[in-house]
Write a protein that binds this DNA or RNA. Sequence first.
DNA 1: GTTGTGACATTAT
DNA 2: CATAATGCCACAA
Length: 131
Amino acid sequence: MPRPKKTPAALFRPLSATSSRSRKPLAAEDDPALQAIWHVVCAIPRGQVSTYGAVARTAGLPGRARQAGFALGVAPESLHLPWHRVVGAGGRIVFPKHSHEHREQARRLRAEGVLVRDGRVPPSAVTRPEE
DNA sequence: GTTGTGACATTAT
DNA sequence: CATAATGCCACAA
């Protein structure tokens, strides 16, 4: 008789392929991908900085940096995530240069001892993907 | 269904 | 250095 369509490999996929195509609309609070991202961000140590791409990858979503950004945007304020510790590739603050968010992020980072110069943080402050 | 946009990344030019 | 071209995917209209 015909086997089920799903291969065992598909069942073991970490968090990939959780696209809205085959999934019911989940509340943000119940979306495992968003939860994974929030969890990773929450674990960034004070005084350190990570990137969207690195966060996504650590959350089991390689190549989905945008989703990391989206996840931060929809994150409930009640979680008190250290969103300011997430920057773009190369330590660049992604918010428009003079926007309120940009200044707020820079302010918060400096408050924890992270040097911010010209909208960027030194590479030494960025959590390096292990080598 | 399609299209456009976005708190991005990577590679090529 | 900058800019463009892709890839990626969620979401709203």
